[in-house]
């Protein structure tokens, strides 16, 4: 069962001086319950891809089927419904509301899902317990450490029991110990709840801990360990030196 199907997805940013092509010709299929890492250098378009997958942005071209629905044509109302029911997004920079307490932050998706106050509080505290932060429930985001903030963000992403969890560089600003803890937690979620989990990272060590690694380069998919597909390397732009033999003499010639 394909939870995600991307066909010919492209994204061009026109709000700058020159149009910038961030993604082009993306074709991708991800099945329910997969644990995937998307890896690529800075500026490769991986975050843009993630934003499209998380319905935070719309593609300039192509089709996106989420659980079989063509979401590229969805209205704002339909999209927001999907965001709160199906998707849990962990952002790169933690994006907690600074004026709300930790537990109020975790409750936020539940507010928009229409859950009642008491039930909400109960569930939010459960989630904080899951990530080991129930004692910080009343703290403000500026009163806890970076690693703790990230765990709160994860707790919030899980609030509505999403079937698709997207994490954009979840361990980017963390130390090794915290990073490992988070990846372990995500894997555990994947195994236990069969949620589809996609992580974006630039760190190959993190990527290795997942089941499938997709590389993104220059706005295209470079390789996909699921299909063992390797895209042909783009044409070389720099002159290549070749060894040539001319008249029995070995020398180098620019070609």
């Amino acid at each position: 069962m394909n939870v995600i199907e991307l066909r010919g997805i492209g994204k061009t940013f026109t709000d700058r001086d020159e149009p910038t092509v961030a993604l082009q010709d993306i074709n991708l299929t991800i099945q329910t319950g997969e644990f995937v890492a998307i890896i690529g250098p800075s500026g490769s378009g991986k975050s843009t891809l993630m934003n499209i997958l998380g319905l935070l942005d719309v593609p300039s071209e192509g089709d996106f089927l989420l659980d079989g629905d063509a979401v590229t044509n969805f209205s704002d109302r339909q999209l927001s419904k999907l965001r709160r029911e199906k998707i849990g997004f962990v952002f790169q920079s933690f994006n907690l509301l600074p004026r709300l307490s930790v537990v109020q932050n975790v409750e936020l998706p539940l507010v928009y899902a229409g859950m009642r106050g008491r039930d909400r509080r109960e569930r939010a505290l459960e989630l904080l317990k899951l990530v080991g932060l129930e004692e910080r429930a009343g703290y403000k985001p500026n009163q806890i450490s970076g690693g703790q903030t990230q765990r709160v963000a994860i707790a919030r992403a899980l609030a509505n029991e999403p079937s698709l969890i997207l994490a954009d560089e979840p361990t980017g600003n963390l130390d090794t110990k915290s990073s490992t803890a988070i990846i372990d937690e995500l894997r555990r979620l994947n195994r236990v709840t069969h949620a589809t989990i996609i992580i974006v990272t630039h760190n190959p060590e993190i990527a290795e801990q997942t089941d499938r690694v997709i590389t993104v380069r220059d706005g295209r998919i470079g390789s996909d360990s699921a299909t063992h597909h390797h895209a042909p390397k783009p044409a070389a732009k720099r002159p290549v030196t070749r060894r040539v033999t001319v008249n029995g003499v070995k020398s180098r010639k620019a070609g």
């Binding site: 935070l56 109302r77 419904k81 994006n95 998706p109 928009y112």
Partner: peptide, 16 residues
């Protein structure tokens, strides 16, 4: 504006 973006990302509609 960031707050608005975040609220939408966790499921608030524009109307809300």
């Amino acid at each position: 504006t960031r707050e608005i973006g975040l609220r939408k990302a966790v499921g608030a509609s524009s109307t809300t």
